[in-house]
Every structure is written in structure tokens, then in C-alpha cells.
């Protein structure tokens, strides 16, 4: 009660003791939640022998080393430095292409009258939720016939097509919230549809475009299944694809795997940290996709 008087607003939870317990428990669970991340990081920066003998949590002996990182980045079979480059080569166009194309479509959905718009929209929602597994076999043979199997371009095309439905869904909602008066003013001033789109809509929708791009990039970067099915050449593999192959046949080398894991998640973590607001806004759109 005294605490309530001090805090200026009656608490729902009640006694200060309960609040204290709640805070302690929440923080304990919170720290526990990221322990695997801490563990994998600690393992990655010390010799694996040390980790096996003393545990990654042990403060002594502590011999910091970058050997695991060097081993992973310049692995003779699956060089993660190559993997990172490949991931970028795939992810950048696989972000720009679908965002550009889906922006057009989304604008059409938001503003043009279309006889079967509702059905088309439901179809888009449906396509967002269909498992990747449902389309990969024909795609495999299609790319094979087009001689695009095991190429960057093939994978980029697949990722782009796969990204269009959810980005359309996301941007359509975004465009619908933009004030239509500005577009109408531009039309009255004599702008064509494309001019309205390029000069008025896109600049206004920039935050939405960034959100969609950030999420699509993270999604493509994190993807494993498409790459696994469509790329075989170790020189062209993306980083997520190489990672499980570092495991080794009989003995799991956690030294190598831990540094590999850190390397593979660095890009999405950075994007999450740098574009946090855009990321979280896009996440709700992406979350629909699964």
C-alpha cells in the first residue's frame, strides 16, 4: 500500500514483495532463455578441449582464441567465408526483386477495382501458407530443364516468387492506410498511374518497403530448405546449407560448429538490431507466413 502511494498508481499485482519476486523470476527466466546463445558463443572463442574438460561456463582456464573462426571461415570443404558471400549473392536480389514486383501488385490490390479481387486476395493468403515441400519437386525439374539447377539465378527466382505473396499481403495493408488525397491530387495534376506510384506512393511507403525488405532478407538468409534442394556445388552453397555439413561423420566438433553458428546468425542478428523498428513491424506481416 505504501508503495502504491509512492508509485502514484495502484498496482494490479499487489504487494511490493510479489512485484519483487516477479521481477527476480522474470529476469532469471530471461537470462536462462539466452543461455544457449551465451554457451555457443563461449564455446566458439576457446579451444574445444578446454570446453570439454571444464565446460563453457567455467571461468578458468580461459584461453581466448579465434582458431574456431579461422577453421570455419576457411574450411577446406565448406568454407563459410564463401558461404557468407553466396548468401549475400542470393539474398540481396531475392529481396529487391520481390519487393519491387510485389509493391506494384499490392498497389493494384489497394487501389484498383478488380472483379475477382477478393478471390485473388484469398488465393494470395493461401499461397502464403502452403508448405515449401508442396512445390519443390516440380521446381527442381523445371530448373533442371532450364539449366538453372545449381545456379544462383535459379535459387533467386524461386526465393523471389516465394516472397511475392506475403510481401504483397503486407504492402497492400500498408498502402491501404496511406492518405488517398495525395494520390488524387497528383492525378488531378495530370500524373499517370505509374507516375503516381513512383513519385507519390513509393516515397510515402518507404518505411513499409524497408520493413518488407528487412524481413524478406532475413527470411532468405535464414532459409535452408530451398538451398538444400537446389544447390549442390560446395562453392555455391549458402551459409545455412554448409553449417550442418561441418558436423563431421562420427564426432560432433562443437568447436567448429559453434563458431559456424555464430557466423551464420550474425547477419540476421545485426539486421534485427539495426532495423529493430522496421523488423518488428514487418515481423507481423511475415509472421503470417511461417
Amino acid at each position: 500500500m505504501r508503495r502504491a502511494l509512492r508509485s502514484g498508481r495502484p498496482g494490479l499485482i499487489g504487494s511490493p514483495f510479489k512485484i519483487l519476486v516477479l521481477n527476480v523470476v522474470a529476469w532469471a527466466v530471461g537470462v536462462l532463455w539466452i543461455t544457449p546463445f551465451i554457451g555457443i558463443f563461449m564455446t566458439s572463442i576457446r579451444p574445444f578441449r578446454e570446453v570439454v574438460l571444464h565446460g563453457w561456463w567455467s571461468p578458468v582456464p580461459f584461453t581466448p582464441t579465434l582458431k574456431n573462426y579461422v577453421d570455419a571461415l576457411f574450411n577446406p570443404m565448406f568454407s563459410l567465408s564463401r558461404g557468407i558471400i553466396n548468401s549475400f549473392i542470393i539474398a540481396v536480389p531475392s529481396t529487391l526483386i520481390p519487393v519491387g514486383i510485389a509493391a506494384l501488385t499490392a498497389y493494384g490490390f489497394a487501389r484498383f477495382s478488380l472483379p475477382v479481387k477478393r478471390y485473388l486476395f484469398v488465393t494470395i493468403l493461401f499461397l502464403m501458407a502452403v508448405p515449401q515441400q508442396m512445390m519443390i519437386i516440380p521446381i527442381f525439374f523445371l530448373l533442371k530443364d532450364l539449366h538453372l539447377l545449381n545456379t544462383y539465378l535459379g535459387l533467386i527466382l524461386v526465393h523471389s516468387s516465394w516472397g511475392i505473396p506475403w510481401i504483397t499481403f503486407f504492402l497492400k495493408n500498408y498502402f491501404s492506410l496511406l492518405p488517398v488525397e495525395l494520390e488524387e491530387a497528383a492525378r488531378v495534376d495530370g500524373a499517370t498511374d505509374f507516375q503516381v506510384f513512383r513519385k507519390v506512393v513509393l516515397p510515402l511507403a518507404l518505411p513499409g518497403l524497408i520493413s518488407a525488405s528487412v524481413l524478406q532478407f532475413a527470411w532468405v538468409w535464414n532459409d535452408f530448405f530451398f538451398a538444400l534442394m537446389l544447390i549442390f556445388d560446395p562453392d555455391k552453397m549458402v551459409v545455412t546449407q554448409m553449417l550442418p555439413r561441418l558436423k563431421g561423420q562420427y564426432q560432433v566438433d562443437w568447436g567448429l560448429l559453434s563458431s559456424g553458428s555464430v557466423i551464420a546468425m550474425l547477419a540476421p542478428l545485426l539486421i534485427y538490431a539495426l532495423f529493430n523498428r522496421y523488423y518488428m513491424r514487418g515481423f507481423r506481416g511475415w509472421a503470417m507466413k511461417g
Binding site: 544457449p36 546463445f37 555457443i40 532475413a218 538468409w221 535464414n222 532459409d223 535452408f224 545455412t240 553449417l243 550442418p244 560448429l257 553458428s261 551464420a264 546468425m265 540476421p268 542478428l269 534485427y272
Partner: peptide, 10 residues
């Protein structure tokens, strides 16, 4: 945020 493949390893 992280790739699910890393999630599996973790």
C-alpha cells in the same frame, strides 16, 4: 531472428 538451422544446432 536466427536461422532455424542454427536453432536446431543450439
Amino acid at each position: 531472428v536466427i536461422p532455424m538451422i542454427v536453432g536446431g544446432l543450439l
